[in-house]
């Protein structure tokens, strides 16, 4: 199922795709402060993309909540990965931190001339942010950004799980 909305010249599209297999300029990885890729999607990046991504992250060191750092994507189809450190596990001010993190991602994308960008449902799943809260914050932040001057041509949100797809789809469809 694909749901999309156009903001000026940019399309915001919800897709049921594996983010690590996306052919984009950059995709977003919901990172830890120690910038270790670890398991889950991090494991997929290591397995499919090779060890170079972690080596780049090791050189960067650490990042704080609300920050985003860019590396190459190794052997993946994507050119780059934006490692975004967002709020986790019901921590205080989750909503504002998630918004700040999303803004940091968009800024990193613009700075690096990214035209095709893919997001996961940020913080949903393991990190415990409610899918609807993630959808609300991300869609509001991204759409606000796309209404201004931007180099982004296509923005994807990869929602593989129905528990994510449902609220993201409903909120995206409801946007004017």
């Amino acid at each position: 199922m694909t749901v999309e909305k156009k903001f000026n010249e940019t399309v915001l599209r919800l897709v049921d795709e594996d983010i690590t297999l996306m052919d984009v300029d950059a995709f977003v990885f919901y990172a830890r402060t120690d910038l270790q890729l670890g398991t889950g999607i991090g494991n997929a990046i290591t397995m499919r993309g090779g060890p170079g991504v972690q080596e780049e992250l090791d050189k960067i060191g650490t990042a704080q909540v609300g920050q985003a750092v860019l590396t190459s994507a190794g052997k993946l189809k994507a050119k780059n990965i934006i490692h975004a450190v967002g709020p986790t596990f019901q921590e205080a001010d989750t909503e504002s931190k998630l918004q700040k993190t999303t803004v940091a991602v968009l800024a990193a994308a613009e700075k690096n001339q990214v035209q095709k960008l893919a997001f996961p449902p940020m913080g949903s799943g393991f990190y415990g942010i409610a899918p609807d809260q993630s959808a609300q914050v991300m869609l509001a932040t991204i759409s606000a950004h796309l209404k201004n001057k931007t180099g982004l041509k296509e923005v994807f949100i990869c929602a593989r799980d129905p528990r994510d797809m449902k609220p993201f789809s409903a909120r995206l469809q409801a946007m004017s």
Partner: peptide, 30 residues
């Protein structure tokens, strides 16, 4: 777990199952 307090191994396995779809992080092609 709701507030992020759990053994490291529980976190590692849970994240694999949430994001890859299985407990051992086996990729689809594998």
């Amino acid at each position: 777990v709701h507030v992020g307090i759990m053994p490291e191994g529980v976190a590692a396995v849970s994240k694999d199952q949430w994001e890859i779809g299985n407990q051992m992080g086996v990729l689809k092609e594998d």
